[in-house]
Design a protein around this nucleic acid. Structure first.
Length: 645
RNA sequence: GCCACUUUAGCUCAGCUGGUAGAGCAACUGAUUUGUAAUCAGUAGGUCGUUGGUUCGAUUCCGACAAGUGGCUCCA
């Protein structure tokens, strides 16, 4: 007999060789019908795999993340079975579960998959699922595994096998399909009740663009049709808050074929948002001791050779233009220009920290396939600044920048983000990163300490640093789930020396400053794209292009409405009157859809009493106020940059 | 840049197997003067992304290019 400890601490005794599924059955049949996998002593196992010694056991169902990923991974196998049956000769690479579903990469020998094929595959998968085929685990000797895939002629699985040791190789079989797989899997295919293959994509083998491109099919499955329907509904809802849709509906920005891909033109409404953001940045930076500068959009080749950008990033800069025998580049970053401003006048330690800021316009020749709405563009406006400081000042300066981030995030109510400490990878020194192993170690530790001392949760990732030093990136997700760096805070121990930047220290010796590159509000493009999705288009009053819309009940009240409008405008409030001879219902509907935060309904009663009837976007009628009450309220809301309400 | 798909009126979308296009909303005009999410009627608006080809004839079939979209790779 063995002892099984359940999550509530209860210990039960079973015969050795018992499975998680047996144990579930001994508790209740209902539970047994829901068990997808089990966590045995911290490892995720098949629910049907025998347990031979004392163990801590957690049964995993659809409610558990590990249960879901097991379910999706098994679904990938089911899809592969369907593919093998419909497209014989397909060779498979890997088919993992992802955040929301699964994919499988395969080589179809040049065959193209169409939307109709996906529907046929779904149908086949449903048929196979209904057969309730068990997923059967079988440990196998390496040479037998190799023989199996040699027979099949699957060079991809053979490649996978090369990296595995004898004794740790298992096959899983369900129905007529056998795959090399570590597992675990759900008990049988019958659990998979609802199937949706979502899209087809090319994916480079092993993620390397020099390799062959495989066909990748993405899908998602659920234990019931209802859950699939809910998921599809959620996708529909997410699409409604996509910044590309909102940007068009709200007249924020536009693009044009004649202007070029990835080049944003900000329309009047978008420009108001930009101006409000810049106002916030200027106030905040001025209070934090920054000074503003302005620099040109282009510079000579020699500067980017000095900075080291050209050898690393020439591919992502627009090609140079030749003038008077010199090559000029559109700037893809502001730092070199800022370094030149630092160097323009001699500096002493008394001038440090020297902080200069600019909403700099930069141009990056992003790969055409990467462009994405406002989030990935070729002309961007950075909330840029550079801080030149001594080693002793560094930690305080870096911490202050982080605090500025958090202050901004509070204003915008941003709470779903990941702070990512991006480190170099030592084997790429001299290739992707400046070759200064000691400095890398030292500054990475310094940055890590700042995060720990400030008690900021973060994750560490290798091989994500800038070429000149480690950085902290703030990662956010667009409504369609794509990840972006919203803000960045970077250490630079390299460019100071490249540009021969110096200051005189207290001992009258020349020293090279450390540099911090920071952009807490990222770029206008990405930040506004993010804000539109974050607020679902319902911007807070202070950011809203139009803050108040006056809606007269009929033309008779236009004179009072416009008198009111002028009065509010004098207070700096962005306000317009709907002067059309439409019914009030229509005026309200359109004002609501345009997401103007306040609507003022003006009729006979209001005109007589010199009052206004206030409507809040999304909330409806909130009662009658005097003009003074309303003005005081909205001005306070704007001045405090309140989010919501 | 690579794989796949898409591109019809300002917007959202119809248009079966080739015979030069249609709806709703928006716009404009007129009527209506309205009390908290769509008043009625009329008018106007499109070289069907661009460009080659096949055909008596192409929005429709084929190719190239461009832009957009979903991924891959990339992202200072």
């Amino acid at each position: 007999m063995i002892n099984i400890t359940l999550p509530d601490g209860a210990v039960r005794q079973y015969e050795a060789g018992v499975t998680a599924l047996d144990i579930a059955k001994s508790i209740s049949d209902g539970l047994a019908r829901k068990v997808l996998a089990a966590n045995v002593n911290g490892q995720v196992w098949d629910a049907t795999r025998p347990i031979n010694e004392d163990a801590k056991l957690t049964l995993l169902t659809w409610q558990d993340k590990d249960g879901q990923s097991t379910f999706w991974h098994s679904s990938a196998h089911l899809m592969a079975e369907a593919i093998e049956s419909l497209f014989p000769g397909a060779k498979f690479w890997v088919g993992p579960a992802i955040d929301r579903g699964f994919y499988y990469d395969m080589d179809l020998g040049g065959r193209q998959i169409t939307e109709e094929d996906l529907r046929a595959l779904e149908k086949k998968m449903n048929e196979l699922a209904k057969q309730n085929n068990a997923y059967i685990r079988k440990p196998i000797a390496k040479r037998d595994a190799v023989a199996y895939f040699e027979e099949k002629g699957d060079e991809y699985k053979l490649d996978l096998l090369q990296g595995l040791n004898d004794g740790e190789i298992t096959f899983y079989t369900q129905g007529s399909f056998t795959d090399l797989c570590r597992g675990p899997h759900i008990p049988n295919t019958g659990f998979i009740k609802a199937i949706k293959l979502t899209n087809i994509a090319g994916a480079y083998w092993k993620g390397d663009e020099k390799n062959k491109q495989l066909t990748r099919i993405y899908g998602v499955t659920f234990p019931s049709q209802k859950e699939l329907d809910e998921y599809l509904h959620m996708l529909e809802e997410a699409k409604k808050r996509d910044h590309r849709k909102l940007g068009k509906e709200l007249g924020i920005y536009t693009m044009d074929d004649d202007v070029g891909p990835g080049l944003i033109m900000w329309m009047p409404n978008g420009t108001i948002i930009i101006e409000e953001l810049e106002k916030l940045a200027k106030e905040t930076e001025s209070a934090a001791g920054y000074k503003r500068v302005v620099t040109p959009h282009i510079a000579k080749e020699s500067m980017y050779l000095t900075s080291g950008h050209l050898p690393y990033y020439a591919d992502s800069m627009y090609p140079p233009m030749e003038l008077e025998g010199e090559k000029y580049y559109l700037k893809s970053m502001n730092c070199p220009h800022h370094h030149k401003i630092f160097a323009a006048e001699p500096k002493s330690y008394r001038d440090l920290p020297y902080r200069i800021a600019e909403y700099g316009t930069v141009y990056r020749y992003e790969q055409s396939g990467e462009l994405f709405g406002l989030m990935r563009v070729r002309c961007l406006h950075m909330n840029d600044a550079h801080i030149y400081c001594s080693k002793e000042q560094f930690a305080d300066e870096f911490r202050a920048v982080n605090e500025m981030y958090l202050k901004y995030f509070k204003i915008f109510g941003i709470d779903k983000y990941v702070m990512r400490l991006s480190l170099h990878s030592p084997e790429k020194l001299g290739i992707k990163y400046v070759n200064e192993p000691e400095l890398w170690k030292e500054t990475e530790e310094m940055v890590r300490q700042v995060l720990i001392e400030s008690n900021i949760p973060y994750i560490e990732v290798q091989d994500e640093a800038a070429f000149y030093g480690p950085k902290i990136d703030v990662q956010i997700f667009s409504v369609i789930g794509r990840e972006f760096t919203l803000a960045t805070n970077q250490v630079d121990f390299s460019q100071g020396r490249s540009f021969k930047l110096q200051y005189t220290n207290a001992d009258n010796q020349p020293e090279t400053p450390l540099i911090i590159h920071r952009a807490p509000l990222g770029t206008h493009e990405r930040f506004i794209g993010f804000l539109l999705e974050h607020y679902a288009g319902k911007l807070p009053v202070w950011l809203s292009p139009l803050q108040v819309k006056i809606l007269p009940i009929s033309d008779k009240f236009l004179p009072y409405a416009n008198e009111l409008r002028d009065q509010l405008r004098k207070k700096g409030i962005r306000v317009e009157t709907d002067e059309r001879s439409e019914k009030i219902g229509k005026k309200i509907r359109e004002a609501e859809l345009s997401r103007v935060p306040y609507m003022l309904v003006i009729g006979e009663k209001e005109a007589l009493e010199h009052k206004l009837s206030v409507r809040r976007q999304g909330k409806g009628d909130v009662g009658t106020q005097t003009v003074e009450e309303f003005t005081a309220h909205i001005l306070e809301e704007i001045a405090d940059r309140k989010s919501g309400e």
